[in-house]
Each structure stands twice: as structure tokens, then as C-alpha cells.
Design a protein around this nucleic acid. Structure first.
Lengths: 124, 124
DNA sequence: CTAAACCCTGACACCGGTGTTAGAGTCAAG
DNA sequence: CTTGACTCTAACACCGGTGTCAGGGTTTAG
């Protein structure tokens, strides 16, 4: 299958498919004319890549274990669990930061409303 | 006061002070030799800028109301409240996204642990 | 044969505040 | 006068997946 077809089947842009290849996540064969030729398995492989990208992993991190998870169950790939755990910490840190900002924003909003129309926002 | 002194007093790098100026947030005078000359008020002004940056506002957004909040109380600057509210929605959306990812990560971790050592993680 | 639709590579743009470097001018202390 | 510490402008790098364009080949249906 050619790149356009794979793009349509997976909903991933042609540009992205070429990028994944450049990052070592996909390795299509080449036809004599230079066109990329994807096996039917590539479709599932692309969905796997998308899954990990949506978990917030980088293409570089994914490249580190993709070959393994494509052959085995995730649980047998040593690299995955530590990666998940550090990503989880990272996410938690980001949530903490955002939550702090959120609190500050609410404080500012509340104090503006108070200063502007004292008592008005206390209505039911 | 020269830029290095202001940088030291505020803890903001010289690079950033020049950037704030470029974004229209600071307008120091110039000495005859071309050096920036900051008034003592600039110190407080920089802290104000930092405050808004840390709320997640962009220099462009800050530029839109900084002149007002430097003269009046925040509550009298019309632009501020809507900006706070849209920023709050933005933050909430980001927290939602991160929370989803977080849940997926935890699911993956749990299922790896289950698959690998069934029951082991259930210990006290 | 031709036009439309694909495909190829390579490269720039984006986002946005900050670090860093290069090359050059200025100033103060010794 | 000289040296070292500042200052100036201008410009690139970063981060990272994606959009988009340029310029050129290939294929396929009419």
C-alpha cells in the first residue's frame, strides 16, 4: 500500500507518516520508482505509534521500545514501565503547576469582583 | 539605573529585560552613550510583568493592559477580567487533557503489573 | 497525449520566552 | 594607557510534531 492510502486508513497525515519514518518508527520498503510500500501490518503499527504519542511520549522514547511491543506484550518490554512512571511524575508536576496558576487566577478574579461590586456576586 | 543593576535587583536576566522592552512592556530612557536608563519605578514594573507572566499570560496580552494596571487598580482595567476568565478556561482544558493522559498511564501501569506478577501488587 | 492526482526530497514556519554568541562601543579603576 | 567589567545590536538555538511550499518525477484515467 502507498503512503496516501495508509494516511487515509489511519487518519494520520502523509507528512506525519514520513516524519515517523525519519524518527525510525516506520520502515516501509521502497518500490523501484522510489515510492514507499507499506505492508498491511503498518496500519496497526501506526495506531500503536499514535497511542504512545497520545500518552505524551516522544518519538524518540517510542523508538526505544516500539520494536519490542510490536512483537511481545507490553509487560515483557522492560523499558516501558519506568518510562510510564517517569511520564506520570512529569504529568503530575504539570498538573501541580497548572493548579497553582488556576488558584491564583481565581483569587485575582474574586478580588476584582469584590473590589468592583462588593457583595454582588454573593447572590444565589 | 542601568540594565545590569535592574537585573540583579529583580532577579530577571538582562536578556529578558531587553525582550520585555522589545515587546513594549518596558520603555527605559537612553543615556547619551546609548545605555538604557531605568527609573526606580521600573523595579516594581518588572515585578508586575513577572507576576502576569507567571499567571500564564503572554507578553502580548500583558502589553494590552499593563499601562492601565500600572496606574489604576486592576479592577478598573476592563481588559483584565475577560482575559483572566479565558485563561482560566484554557487552564482547565489543559488540566482535563493531562488528567486523561494520567488516567491512561495509570491504567497501562496497572495492567502491566497485573500481567507480570498477578496479585503481587495487592500486598499491604 | 494530456491533465489530474500522487509521490519524492528538502526546507522553512510555528510557538515564545530565554540562553548564548559574535563583534563592537563605553567606562572606571589602577 | 590598559585591562576588565558593562553595555549595545543582531541573530541563531531550543522544543517537537505538523503544515505547507517549491521543484520535480510517476502513474492513471480519459
Amino acid at each position: 500500500m502507498k503512503i496516501g492510502e495508509l494516511a487515509e486508513k489511519t487518519g494520520v497525515s502523509v507528512r506525519s507518516l514520513r516524519y515517523y519514518e525519519q524518527q525510525g518508527l516506520l520502515t516501509p520498503l521502497r518500490q523501484v520508482n522510489g515510492y514507499r510500500e507499506y505492508s498491511p501490518l503498518a496500519e496497526e503499527q501506526v495506531r500503536t505509534i499514535r497511542f504512545y504519542l497520545e500518552l505524551g511520549l516522544s518519538t524518540e522514547q517510542i523508538a526505544g521500545f516500539l520494536h519490542c511491543v510490536l512483537k511481545n506484550k507490553e509487560a515483557f518490554c522492560e523499558e516501558v514501565l519506568p518510562l510510564y512512571r517517569s511520564k506520570l511524575e512529569e504529568i503530575d508536576e504539570q498538573i501541580r503547576l497548572l493548579t497553582n496558576i488556576r488558584r491564583n487566577l481565581e483569587d485575582r478574579i474574586a478580588s476584582i469582583l469584590l473590589e468592583r461590586d462588593p457583595g454582588e456576586e454573593a447572590l444565589p
